[in-house]
């Protein structure tokens, strides 16, 4: 294909390209906003799940069980159902139940329990002896969390962030259901509903590249912080 042909295709398909750029932006906004809020809530929740466990630093089995049940409920609802079921909540929070902002609400709520469990798992990897050593040194619980647990679990937490972002890219494809837009939505509408295989292929290629980049960046960061 000559340069000329590319420029011609470009000129002929400006509308399509604008659509792809817009939807790429929508995907990025949905994934990273819900990811960011999800981590802000999910990481503390995961820490709390870990600490409140039996023989944990702040043992509280009642709280642990309650949190566990809530998290499990959140994780067991299929995302597409959660998306629809949360419409009233979404309307209450963002004032509308359609659009990209509206899709962020269910994405965030779907991400929180997911992140919480992953973070809990990452914290479980921290040897209990380290917590004990910190206690023997006279560390307060908050210091143990900030100076021992979180830094030691950091490689695992970064890994959890990576997995979550990739999962959110997948979830965001369903956001079209509530008019959230995004690449997945374009793929469905053009590729499936209009039989436009080219557009579908382009969206898939962009999504593949996006996931590869997130994963590579995550792996790189894990390697940087992991001194185990």
């Amino acid at each position: 294909m000559s340069v000329n042909a590319v420029t011609m295709w470009w000129a002929e398909n400006t509308r399509l390209i604008e659509l792809l750029v817009d939807s790429l932006w929508e995907t990025l906004v949905m994934v990273f906003t819900s990811g960011f809020i999800g981590f802000a809530v999910g990481i503390p929740l995961g820490v709390l799940l870990h600490l409140s466990k039996k023989n944990g630093l702040l043992e509280n089995t009642t709280l642990n069980k309650a949190l566990g049940i809530v998290v499990n409920i959140g994780r067991s609802i299929p995302f597409i159902i959660l998306l629809v079921a949360l419409i009233p909540v979404t309307r209450f929070i963002v004032g509308s139940s359609i659009g990209t902002a509206a899709a962020i609400v269910p994405l965030t709520i779907g991400a929180i329990p997911f992140i919480a469990r992953l973070v809990e798992g990452a914290l479980l990897e921290v040897p209990s002896g380290l917590v004990e050593a910190a206690q023997a040194m006279g560390a307060k619980p908050i210091q143990i969390i900030n100076k021992v647990l979180l830094p030691e679990a950091l490689p695992g937490i970064i890994n959890a962030v990576t997995i979550t972002l990739v999962t959110l890219v997948g979830y965001s494809a369903m956001a079209g259901t509530v008019g959230g837009g995004g690449l997945g939505d374009v793929g469905i509408r053009y590729g499936y509903q209009r039989f436009d295989a080219t557009v579908m292929m382009i969206t898939i290629v962009i999504l593949v590249i996006m996931v590869q980049m997130i994963q590579s960046l995550g792996d790189y960061l894990v390697k940087r912080v992991d001194h185990r």
Partner: peptide
């Protein structure tokens, strides 16, 4: 107790050093 423990050092069989530091 937390304060008082600062005056009692302890070492362990498996060292318990922080791998991130």
């Amino acid at each position: 107790l937390t304060q008082t423990r600062r005056k009692i050092g302890m070492i362990f069989q498996h060292f318990n050093l922080l791998s991130s530091r």
